[in-house]
Design a protein around this nucleic acid. Structure first.
Lengths: 352, 352
DNA sequence: TTGAAAGCGCTAACAG
DNA sequence: CTGTTAGCGCTTTCAA
């Protein structure tokens, strides 16, 4: 008696029991849909008694409003797509990078805080993957070539947020990191620590970010009268990057400082330097662009240039939510400063 | 003329232009909603001419079907929630772990392949975070304590997939990794390579997985008459784990093999061994449970025990899709075998 | 072969 | 203060 199980429906198939609807609750409580809806949503002017009765009945019956129906009414789904562009062929390998992992998790967290959920979208997105989903907006992390997707999104009137390459396009917002300032800060730091031959390891990729880093390095060297020493890593990944580090260190031009821009494992980079007979930070100052937490556990601890994925995520979501809720964002883009986290590997002061 | 921009609506606000609806297309093409819908979906029996006309008009007008409305009709949203349980306080830090990063990305990829998208959910999920979303199912990666969430999900008739701790509950499916076999394989491998005093580093956490590993180690040692040597790491993270490794290696009981179960950075573990005067693999065989790709780049390369996140993801999605689409899965759970990736760090044969 | 009409489940005007 | 009614945008019987 007072058995919570409905008993109706085919008893043979327990999973097929029909969901409890608003109308069921209304009937059970002897009220109308409107009243129950208002009671549950805290809207309207209802007597406390009725409100409580409706709520009680709903709870007792295990009522759960159908989110899709609400979305249809509301006109938006509170869903944001998150798509990482580079490496369309090997989708999602990028989460292996601490930067993308943190960017992803921070974006999800920031979105959730504002009441939006993040859906993971594959890199390639064969033009229409996302079309099945009621996305209020889409974040395209590091678009490469596939501007196609951004065009499609804009054509579908879905706000997009990505990097600065879309600057000026209506409906497209951007967040980027200030590479130029970052490079200068790093090189100034080397200089202040007494280094005079800073070398740079860069990915051989035409990304705007890397191009900016290279240009900033060139400018800085020219201004300070230092020789340029750049080595390119043919691909991303620890293997090629470590090889590039070795190439930079192994030649006859012994640099006295090294900045590794493509994300590589801190301990592997230090090991490579050691193999080539360098004492860090004695003979060589090292800075890696990385979010890898192992940097604090190497000996010496490694100075890193953080691309602040969490701040980038927050800024992006802020922009998007403003655009979504106020109709348009205060500005179309945000430039976020990086953070040089100085540790022992780039501090010569410890040397006597 | 033949200007594609509608011109209707307030010209001052370009973003406010109303979306084009199915009914707009129908009117424009001189057809009915039904016909256009059928034409676009490839259903119904329409004359090729009409079908093409409808399609052309839709394309020209930039029509995009409203996904929410379709979902409401279809009854499902093709959306799967992905929630990682442990560390409710520090949401998403877990993506810093290669295992979770790969599990996440592989799950998203597997789901997409079956036509479902993955939504990232925060760990805590204050009982109702997910209720706003039309989730067809939810994946709870490593539930801890918060069985509460699983109960809620089941009560809401949303299929759940998680680890073996839910075995036997209706509506709950599980995928787990065969820890016992994994430990035995590792220890057998050590034994085959001539090691006689294998030590174990374990997290000090009551997870089923770790408990299983500990039990399997105990059993194996008893069977083979080897002394047990277990050191617990108080927390996850490279710092505590490396400290535990040092404790295991630094004492008077010099082990000749070491299995590090909590995920730690391969190069950091090797460095720790080196600091304590061990030659790997000369005096010490090392295996780490890890998905970290740096394992292949250390010298020597590090043997890893992979918990096969990609296979786990595939198995989970398969189960879920079966449950969702056939009404019930062939079985309630799947046990996935791990993979020992043998590299130089655990091969004594190289020694002369 | 095509179209009118009836919902999917919910919320928000408007009456009563 | 509560209930009736009209949609949100789409798909899909069922007639014509």
């Amino acid at each position: 008696m007072t058995n919570p199980s409905p008993g109706r429906g085919s008893p043979a198939s327990p999973t097929a029991r029909p969901r409890v609807l608003l109308v069921d609750v209304a009937r059970e409580a002897g009220l109308s849909k409107t009243t129950v809806s208002a009671a549950l949503n805290g809207t309207g002017r209802l007597s406390p008694a009725v409100r409580e009765r409706a709520r009680e009945t709903a709870r007792r019956m295990g009522y759960r409003p159908n989110p899709t129906a609400r979305q249809l009414r509301a006109g938006r789904a509170r869903l944001i797509g998150f798509m990482v562009g580079e490496l369309a062929g090997a989708p999602w390998t990028l989460l292996d990078s601490p930067y993308y992992a943190q960017l992803t998790s921070a974006t999800a967290a920031a979105a959730l805080k504002r009441g939006y959920a993040l859906v993971l979208l594959p890199a390639g997105s064969l033009h229409g993957e996302w079309a099945e989903l009621p996305l209020d907006a889409v974040i395209v992390a590091d678009p490469v070539g596939d501007d196609r997707i951004i065009d499609d999104l804009i054509a579908a009137r879905i706000p997009v947020i990505t990097d600065r390459s879309v600057e000026g396009r209506p409906g497209a917002y951007w967040v980027d990191v200030d590479v130029v300032a970052a490079m200068r800060e790093t090189l100034d730091h080397f200089e202040a620590q007494g280094a005079r031959r800073p070398a740079l390891v860069l990915p051989d990729s035409p990304t705007q970010f890397y191009a900016g880093a290279l240009a900033a390095y060139g400018d800085w060297c020219a201004e300070h009268g230092r020789p340029e020493h750049v080595v390119f890593a043919p691909e991303a990944g620890n293997g090629p990057v470590v090889a590039a580090v070795e190439e930079a260190l192994g030649g006859t031009r012994r640099p006295d400082a090294l900045c590794v821009v493509p994300e590589a494992s801190p301990p592997l980079v230090l090991e490579a330097a050691r193999r080539h007979g360098y004492d860090v930070p004695g003979d060589l100052l090292v800075v890696c662009v990385s979010e890898d937490l192992t940097a604090t556990h190497t000996r010496p601890a490694l100075t890193t240039l953080s691309l602040v994925p969490r701040e980038v995520a927050e800024a992006g979501i802020d922009l998007l939510v403003a655009a979504l809720e106020q109709g348009s964002a205060p500005s179309a883009g945000v430039l976020v400063p990086t953070r040089l986290e100085v540790r022992a590997s780039s501090l010569r002061t410890g040397r006597r």
